[in-house]
Amino acid sequence: MNWEIFFQALTSGILTGGLFALVAVGLTMILGVLKIINFAHGEFLMLGMYMTYWLCTLFNMDPYLTLIITIPAFFFFGVIIQRWLINPILDAPMEIQILLTLGLFIFLANLAQLLFGPHVRSIETAYTFKILTIGSVNFASTRLIMFIFAIIFTTALYIFLKKTDLGKAIRACSEESYGAMLVGINVKRVYMIAFGIGTACAAAAGSLAMPIYYVNPHIGATFVMTAFVVVVLGGMGNFMGALVGGFIIGLAESFGAVILSASLKQLVTFTIFVLILLLRPTGLFGTKRS
């Protein structure tokens, strides 16, 4: 491996890691606050991609401008799903909850197939042809923009959780929901907001990924599998863990592809997954739960 390849792998890993982090932050938020494993997370991302695709194709919108529509739209979509689907089964056994989100995943993927067909779609914008070169390292402007937005969103979310009353309430519910209820926090409302934020994160990631990737009804699984690994790596429900984990997995995949083979990079990812589960089940940043 020469330096040219090394720096390219480093850049690619960090840029892709930003996207993984944004997807994982949404997932870990839902997991941390509601204690629910959301298998439909990838489908929110896929629907976000479709929304950006249609807004760009039909109304000629700038793909990054579509964020101002996708984020609120999917926030409310998440709130509705939480209110009418997740809430009634919050106290049900875990297998029931898993079946529900799994069912939602299959439903949404097939709904997309019914509405949009199984075909692959992709958008071409003015950004597509702008490539940045630093020394020998190449990367598309769309990747850098995706990365910057992902960092802005996660930082904003972090500040929101740390500094605002609502953010503190979300964290309180995440740590001890009964306690939160006792001090007068409206837990049901917090749950809806948390699920809405998680859904909006996935959809925002979809919008940001659309100019780089392609969309079909099954794209969700591609990203969300990696996101699950990131969440476990960072410690389930841990915000900083998801962020750092995203970069670790991004770099691991990138260097795995160079050192071994692109065919085996999933092997690297899941080896890390298994090792974390064996050696540090609470994840890098996780603390023991009662």
């Binding site: 792998a9 990737y213 990203f223 083979s261 692109a262 999933q266």
Partner: peptide
């Protein structure tokens, strides 16, 4: 060079 068709980034390859 081999890759898995579900790859999300092939720039290193």
């Amino acid at each position: 060079f081999m890759y898995n068709k579900a790859a999300t980034d092939l720039s290193p390859t």
